[in-house]
């Protein structure tokens, strides 16, 4: 629960940063924070109170069935969200990296990091 609340808090902070800060780098940081918050939320969603890790070993009794492969007998944490988070982290990283590299290019071309300086395209 704490993780979930923490994740939501991070998302809100990140969004605030994205909307209120003028420096593009800070906006990117905001985006990164939102991303992290979301990852936390995902993990929190998969977590089940008092369950063990989803590793099939002696701690987790299981039986084989004909149709569904394996059937778990006791509570384990859902492994899927954790797996998803891994993918999401990678993707988030890639986007952040691209954003930063664009920011650097932009700074080289125009010498400003203030997002208000890039309003030529409008209406």
């Amino acid at each position: 629960m704490l993780v979930l609340i923490g994740g939501i808090l991070l998302v809100i902070i990140g969004i605030w940063a994205m909307l209120a800060r003028k420096n593009i780098i800070r906006i990117v940081i905001g985006f990164s924070i939102v991303d992290t918050g979301i990852h936390l939320i995902i993990v929190a969603v998969g977590y089940i109170q008092n369950a063990t890790a989803p590793i099939i070993d002696s701690a987790v009794p299981f039986e084989k069935t004909a149709t569904d492969g394996i059937k778990l007998a006791s509570k384990v944490v859902d492994p899927v969200p954790s797996a998803l988070v891994l993918t999401a982290i990678v993707i988030g990283l890639a986007v952040t990296a691209l954003l930063l590299s664009f920011t650097i290019r932009l700074f080289k071309v125009n010498g400003s990091l203030n997002i208000d300086d890039y309003e030529e395209l409008k209406w």
């Binding site: 994205m18 593009i24 906006i27 985006f31 986007v95 691209l98 954003l99 664009f102 920011t103 290019r105 932009l106 071309v109 125009n110 997002i115 890039y118 030529e120 395209l121």
Partner: peptide
């Protein structure tokens, strides 16, 4: 300039 700036907006 415009293309890069638009790129950032687009990515965000």
């Amino acid at each position: 300039k415009n293309s890069l700036a638009a790129g950032i907006k687009y990515m965000l």
